[in-house]
Amino acid sequence: MEQPGTTTPLTGAVRELATQVVSALTSGGHSPMSAHTPVTVGDDELGLAAVRVLGADVLLPAVLHRTLPAPADLAVCEKAVLAYPPGPDASPASRWSHWAMVRTLADLGAPTAHTSFENPEPDAAWLEDLPWQGLAHQLALLAALAVPGADSAVAGIARRRTVDVARGFVRAVRRRGWLQAAATGRWLTLLDDVPDTLGLDAGLAFVALMGGDDPRVALHLQAARPVLPGAAAGRT
């Protein structure tokens, strides 16, 4: 986790990219026939690193709005996937992050991803046995998988352990970990049987009030928005 007050070039690039994604998400759906304005700023090393940090969320506006992604974004994401496949020592979270990006590219019709990758789901069994604190932490890292209608073994575990995810949300809010709070809250908006007493709707508003200045927090909150109660009709 980044320390407050320290800004590395990567941190700045990630913030900038997240800001662009949030802007695209909040600007609403474009015509299905016209592509989004690009959110990525370049395919140099820093640009690709920032894409890897946000993962499939870079393409989230096109996924949620069911529009065409900007060709430039597709190209940068494909380049990131090709340039940085997970190594043999990669953490499960980074394997899943890579998997999600490849799947999203394929779903959006990116030719290379669609034809060049066999993309079996990574192992998710390691999540099953984590205590609720660890589960919530890992799911927060994997929040790019929390997309309406996009199933995965990780989403299956989140569904089976809804109360534990909800506990993780409470823990994160209590500790003012707004990024984890927004990310676990994003998962919860996809899950049935979230305890009413959690107060998720107000909780997400609280996270927005307290931590919404961080564009990465805002990104998760925007991702959570379409399926908040009252807006769930379009959920697949």
Binding site: Q133, V163, A166, R167, V170, R171, R174, R175, P195, T197
Partner: peptide
């Protein structure tokens, strides 16, 4: 009882 079953583990942890 239900409220505490759900949330007491978080408060203990905290």
């Amino acid at each position: 009882t239900e409220h505490l079953r759900l949330w007491l583990p978080v408060w203990l942890d905290d």
